[in-house]
């Protein structure tokens, strides 16, 4: 038997979720997770979510990309070392274009790595068939409590407008 009961209240109105998060924190229960079909600024604010760090991965990718692209073009030009019309072998303007494209490419790759790493994806074990999905039209508020407090938590969810209450564990 799990040491903690996990109960999910399913809401159709995100504003009810925002209110329920604030009230839940006042009670003897622990807020574990909030799920929803779309992002919602009110819920994110109620949860106190900080700005994602994905941007740092993107920035790192971009910096690496620019210098990699420019260096690749310069290296290839250096292998020829053939001066045409007195122009420099390492030509800044055309190689800047290669650097620019690599900046975008590596920024996006960094963005994807950042997204997967920060969101801990893929996580195929996260989808549990017995848990009601929150990808359609309902927001799920998951809270943990002791076995004794479970009935109170269920009553709390219902009092805050939950259309359904489900015991997860």
């Amino acid at each position: 038997m799990a040491a903690e009961r996990r109960i999910m209240g399913l809401f159709s109105d995100p504003d009810q979720v925002v209110a329920a998060i604030a009230d839940l924190r006042q009670g003897p229960w622990a807020l574990r997770d909030v799920r929803g079909p779309i992002p919602h600024h009110g819920i994110a604010a109620a949860l106190g979510l900080k700005k994602s760090r994905v941007g740092w991965y993107t920035l790192a990718g971009g910096i690496i990309g620019f210098f990699s692209g420019f260096a690749l073009a310069a290296y290839c030009a250096g292998q020829w070392n053939l001066i045409v019309s007195g122009k420099p072998v390492v030509a800044l303007v055309p190689f800047f274009i290669v650097g620019f494209e690599f900046t975008i490419l590596f920024s996006v790759l960094g963005n994807v790595v950042g997204l997967l790493n920060e969101a801990r994806l893929p996580d195929l074990g996260a989808v549990k068939p017995h848990e009601p999905p929150c990808t359609g039209d309902r927001y799920g508020l998951v809270a943990g409590c002791s076995h004794e407090a479970a009935a109170g938590l269920e009553a709390f969810f219902r009092s805050r407008g939950a259309a359904e209450v489900s015991v997860l564990a």
Binding site: D33, V34, R35, G36, P37, I38, P39, I43, A44, L47, L49, K50, K51, S52, V54, G55, T58, S107, V108, N111, V112, G114, L115, L116, E118, A119, L121, P122, D123, L124, G125, A126, V127, P133, C134, T135, G140
Partner: peptide, 20 residues
């Protein structure tokens, strides 16, 4: 990829999508 609509996912997803 195991997406469940957690707001922790949405936090990074919306930011990543904006950068995209």
């Amino acid at each position: 990829l195991g997406w469940t609509g957690r707001f922790e996912h949405w936090r990074h997803y919306t930011r990543g999508y904006l950068f995209f």
